[in-house]
Protein backbone atom coordinates (compact mmCIF):
# COMPACT_ATOMS: atom_id res chain seq x y z
CA UNK A 1 0.00 0.00 0.00
CA UNK A 2 1.30 3.39 -0.89
CA UNK A 3 1.40 6.25 1.51
CA UNK A 4 1.04 9.65 0.04
CA UNK A 5 3.47 12.44 0.78
CA UNK A 6 0.73 14.31 2.59
CA UNK A 7 0.03 11.39 4.83
CA UNK A 8 3.69 11.21 5.81
CA UNK A 9 3.69 14.91 6.49
CA UNK A 10 0.71 14.55 8.76
CA UNK A 11 2.67 12.05 10.86
CA UNK A 12 5.45 14.54 11.37
CA UNK A 13 5.35 17.14 14.09
CA UNK A 14 3.92 20.44 13.13
CA UNK A 15 7.14 22.45 13.55
CA UNK A 16 8.98 20.51 10.90
CA UNK A 17 6.48 21.49 8.27
CA UNK A 18 7.07 25.17 8.77
CA UNK A 19 10.82 24.73 8.76
CA UNK A 20 11.22 26.14 5.32
CA UNK A 21 11.01 29.87 5.17
CA UNK A 22 11.47 30.28 8.90
CA UNK A 23 13.21 33.45 9.94
CA UNK A 24 16.65 32.79 11.49
CA UNK A 25 16.53 32.99 15.26
CA UNK A 26 19.26 35.60 15.43
CA UNK A 27 17.14 38.29 13.86
CA UNK A 28 14.28 37.82 16.28
CA UNK A 29 15.10 38.77 19.89
CA UNK A 30 12.09 37.05 21.34
CA UNK A 31 12.91 33.72 19.76
CA UNK A 32 16.45 33.91 21.04
CA UNK A 33 15.17 34.42 24.57
CA UNK A 34 12.83 31.48 24.17
CA UNK A 35 15.54 29.29 22.71
CA UNK A 36 17.99 30.11 25.48
CA UNK A 37 15.28 29.28 27.97
CA UNK A 38 14.81 25.90 26.32
CA UNK A 39 18.55 25.34 26.33
CA UNK A 40 18.76 26.27 30.00
CA UNK A 41 16.15 23.64 30.72
CA UNK A 42 17.89 21.06 28.55
CA UNK A 43 21.26 21.72 30.19
CA UNK A 44 19.65 21.32 33.59
CA UNK A 45 18.36 17.86 32.72
CA UNK A 46 21.62 16.60 31.23
CA UNK A 47 24.39 15.86 33.71
CA UNK A 48 26.86 14.69 31.07
CA UNK A 49 28.10 16.04 27.76
CA UNK A 50 30.68 15.12 25.14
CA UNK A 51 33.75 17.33 25.02
CA UNK A 52 35.86 17.54 21.88
CA UNK A 53 39.47 18.66 22.13
CA UNK A 54 42.32 18.25 19.71
CA UNK A 55 45.85 17.09 20.11
CA UNK A 56 48.39 17.31 17.31
CA UNK A 57 45.63 17.73 14.75
CA UNK A 58 43.63 14.72 15.91
CA UNK A 59 40.18 15.16 17.40
CA UNK A 60 39.59 13.61 20.78
CA UNK A 61 36.21 13.30 22.53
CA UNK A 62 35.43 12.51 26.12
CA UNK A 63 32.45 12.43 28.44
CA UNK A 64 32.36 15.09 31.13
CA UNK A 65 30.02 16.31 33.87
CA UNK A 66 29.13 19.91 33.07
CA UNK A 67 27.11 22.83 34.35
CA UNK A 68 26.29 26.23 32.90
CA UNK A 69 25.82 29.72 34.26
CA UNK A 70 22.46 31.46 34.10
CA UNK A 71 23.26 33.36 30.90
CA UNK A 72 24.69 30.27 29.19
CA UNK A 73 27.82 32.25 28.51
CA UNK A 74 29.98 29.74 30.35
CA UNK A 75 29.99 25.98 30.47
CA UNK A 76 31.82 24.60 33.48
CA UNK A 77 33.56 21.29 33.91
CA UNK A 78 36.38 19.70 35.81
CA UNK A 79 39.11 17.22 34.97
CA UNK A 80 42.19 15.71 36.55
CA UNK A 81 45.37 17.07 35.05
CA UNK A 82 46.93 13.73 34.10
CA UNK A 83 44.36 13.21 31.33
CA UNK A 84 44.58 13.44 27.55
CA UNK A 85 41.84 16.03 27.38
CA UNK A 86 43.72 18.26 29.78
CA UNK A 87 46.95 17.96 27.81
CA UNK A 88 45.02 18.72 24.61
CA UNK A 89 43.21 21.78 25.84
CA UNK A 90 46.36 23.12 27.48
CA UNK A 91 47.96 23.15 24.04
CA UNK A 92 44.85 24.27 22.17
CA UNK A 93 42.02 25.93 24.10
CA UNK A 94 39.47 25.70 21.26
CA UNK A 95 36.89 23.10 22.16
CA UNK A 96 33.43 21.92 21.27
CA UNK A 97 30.82 20.40 23.55
CA UNK A 98 27.84 18.25 22.60
CA UNK A 99 24.86 18.34 24.92
CA UNK A 100 21.82 16.27 23.92
CA UNK A 101 18.81 14.47 25.29
CA UNK A 102 18.79 11.41 23.06
CA UNK A 103 17.46 8.18 24.46
CA UNK A 104 18.94 6.03 21.72
CA UNK A 105 15.52 5.07 20.34
CA UNK A 106 13.78 5.67 17.02
CA UNK A 107 11.81 8.52 18.57
CA UNK A 108 15.04 10.44 18.91
CA UNK A 109 14.74 11.36 15.25
CA UNK A 110 11.59 13.20 16.16
CA UNK A 111 12.17 14.32 19.77
CA UNK A 112 15.86 14.64 20.49
CA UNK A 113 17.63 17.95 20.68
CA UNK A 114 21.40 18.13 20.22
CA UNK A 115 23.35 21.27 21.01
CA UNK A 116 26.90 21.82 19.88
CA UNK A 117 28.72 24.55 21.78
CA UNK A 118 31.80 26.18 20.29
CA UNK A 119 34.17 28.12 22.45
CA UNK A 120 37.49 28.52 24.18
CA UNK A 121 38.71 27.19 27.49
CA UNK A 122 39.52 29.79 30.10
CA UNK A 123 40.67 29.28 33.63
CA UNK A 124 38.17 30.09 36.35
CA UNK A 125 39.48 33.28 37.97
CA UNK A 126 39.79 33.73 41.71
CA UNK A 127 37.07 36.37 41.91
CA UNK A 128 34.48 34.10 40.32
CA UNK A 129 35.70 30.79 41.76
CA UNK A 130 33.22 30.61 44.61
CA UNK A 131 30.16 31.29 42.54
CA UNK A 132 31.28 29.00 39.73
CA UNK A 133 32.00 26.21 42.18
CA UNK A 134 28.57 26.69 43.69
CA UNK A 135 26.95 26.48 40.28
CA UNK A 136 28.88 23.32 39.51
CA UNK A 137 28.24 21.64 42.85
CA UNK A 138 24.54 22.53 42.83
CA UNK A 139 24.26 20.27 39.83
CA UNK A 140 26.87 17.68 40.82
CA UNK A 141 27.07 17.73 44.63
CA UNK A 142 28.63 14.27 44.68
CA UNK A 143 31.69 15.51 42.79
CA UNK A 144 32.84 17.70 45.65
CA UNK A 145 35.94 15.62 46.47
CA UNK A 146 36.83 15.35 42.80
CA UNK A 147 36.46 19.09 42.27
CA UNK A 148 38.53 20.03 45.30
CA UNK A 149 41.40 17.65 44.67
CA UNK A 150 44.70 19.52 44.13
CA UNK A 151 45.20 17.30 41.09
CA UNK A 152 42.06 18.64 39.50
CA UNK A 153 41.51 21.58 37.15
CA UNK A 154 38.26 23.53 37.25
CA UNK A 155 37.66 25.07 33.83
CA UNK A 156 35.13 27.12 31.94
CA UNK A 157 34.32 27.22 28.28
CA UNK A 158 33.69 30.76 27.13
CA UNK A 159 30.97 29.96 24.60
CA UNK A 160 30.98 31.78 21.33
CA UNK A 161 27.88 30.16 19.89
CA UNK A 162 25.48 27.26 20.12
CA UNK A 163 24.37 25.20 17.15
CA UNK A 164 21.01 23.67 17.98
CA UNK A 165 19.68 20.65 16.10
CA UNK A 166 16.11 19.46 16.52
CA UNK A 167 13.72 17.29 14.51
CA UNK A 168 16.63 15.42 13.00
CA UNK A 169 17.59 18.13 10.53
CA UNK A 170 16.37 21.45 11.85
CA UNK A 171 19.43 23.54 12.69
CA UNK A 172 19.73 27.02 14.14
CA UNK A 173 22.63 28.98 15.53
CA UNK A 174 22.67 31.33 18.45
CA UNK A 175 25.48 33.56 19.70
CA UNK A 176 25.88 34.27 23.36
Amino acid sequence: MLITKDEIASLLPHKLQVQEGEVPVESKGLEKTKLLEDLRELFGTQPLAVLATQGEGTPYVSLIAFASDEKLKYLLFSTTKATRKYANLSANPSVSLLIDNRKNTLEDFRDAVAVTALGKIEPVEDFELRIMENIYLMKHPHLVDFLHSPTNAFLKINVEKYIVVSHFQHVVEVKV
Binding site: L137, P141, H142, L143, V144
Partner: peptide, 11 residues
Amino acid sequence: DKTGLRGRILL
Protein backbone atom coordinates in the same frame (compact mmCIF):
# COMPACT_ATOMS: atom_id res chain seq x y z
CA ASP B 1 19.78 13.61 47.64
CA LYS B 2 20.10 17.27 48.55
CA THR B 3 23.61 16.96 49.92
CA GLY B 4 24.91 14.77 47.11
CA LEU B 5 25.76 12.04 49.59
CA ARG B 6 23.87 9.46 47.57
CA GLY B 7 26.21 10.06 44.64
CA ARG B 8 29.30 10.18 46.82
CA ILE B 9 28.41 6.85 48.44
CA LEU B 10 27.83 5.39 44.99
CA LEU B 11 31.23 6.59 43.82
